[in-house]
Computed example of a mutant assay.
Amino acid sequence: MRRTILKSLLAAPVAAAFPSVWAQAAKIEKPKLTIAVGGKNLFYYLPLSIAERQGYFKAEGLDVEIPDFAGGSKALQALIGGSADVVSGAYEHTINMQAKNQSIQEFVLQGRAPQIVLAVSNRNMPNYQSIADLKGKKIGVSAPGSSTSMMATYVLSKAGLKATDVSFVGVGTSSGALSAVKSGQVDAIANLDPVITMLERDKLIKVISDTRTLKDTQAVYGGPMPAACLYAPTKFLNENPNTAQALANAMVRALRWLQKTGPSDLVKTVPEAYLLGDRSLYLDAWLRVKEAMSPDGIMPDAGPATALKMLQTFDAEIASKKIDLSKTFTNAFAKKAAAKYV
């Protein structure tokens, strides 16, 4: 009895000092989990890295492992295969998976613009005139089936070309993408910053379609286009609501940090490898895409419909299916997190 009383007395000051952490730690259903990502160094996934580097996951009582894959489609495969619990990836995958009768839901948005750029190689296509010139060419993407290949396919389809009219080549999102263009391995590339800004600086590419700003995204897609997000099987969210809320809290806190932080703090926070050897270029690229970050993690009202319309343009399977967009996302977790971290 005395031991029990003593333990209670010793624990009391700790619980009093950290009431929110103490309470939340008791609620987390799955404190140790894996978030798969495809191209962690990209600004597209920057909020994920900030949440990790700033210790926001740990502050929510989570022990998170983040394996990095060559592209978003590979991260999705990890989720479907059971080696990941959650994915930091493109929202479009939730629609694709519903068409395949698998229920996947977005629950906190990272980006409100895709940031993907389609550009042609000045070396291989110096006389480029129009999208039609890409027929029969090789287009480098992060990975076939990823958001970069979907964006390129959409741009091609608007010009009357099909995905089968070109060859998509997986080049990753870092040094592999840079070398693919420099060596002439690809004729065009669909990729993101900081890779694109580095290729532009060296005058290696000509941009032909850009979604790094809200204005450019509106011009390409005709509406707001949701981008990176955290998504998971609906079953996971239903069985682990407190875990999902903790993840949303950490991500929204990272988004708030990005809204307020200065350039010098950003470069101090991200890993040195993200800078690709050029700090000033990294910051220049950041200024180009900063407005693409979601300010609060909440899915915009018209976003899902824009994504569906885009996919229906070139994906016959999705065009033939009745997609229930309300089942591809939930704002419940993000809204609660946004209220917590104002």
Rank of each mutant, 00 (worst) to 15 (best):
K7Q: 10
L10F: 04
L10T: 01
L10P: 00
S20R: 10
A26H: 03
K32I: 01
A36H: 08
G39H: 10
L42Y: 00
F43Q: 10
E52P: 02
Y56T: 07
Y56A: 04
G61H: 03
G82Y: 11
S88I: 04
N96H: 06
N96F: 04
Q98Y: 05
N101P: 00
Q102H: 10
I104E: 04
Q105C: 09
E106T: 15
L109E: 11
G111Y: 02
V117E: 00
V117M: 05
V120S: 05
K137Q: 09
A143R: 09
L156E: 02
A163F: 00
V166E: 02
V166F: 03
F168G: 01
S179K: 11
A190N: 10
D202N: 14
I205N: 07
D210M: 06
D216W: 00
G222M: 06
P226I: 13
N249W: 00
V252C: 12
K260W: 05
T261F: 09
G262T: 11
V267Y: 03
L276A: 10
S294Y: 09
G297S: 15
P300E: 12
A302S: 14
A305I: 13
L308R: 08
S320V: 01
S326P: 07
T328C: 14
T330I: 12
T330E: 14
F333N: 01
K336Y: 04
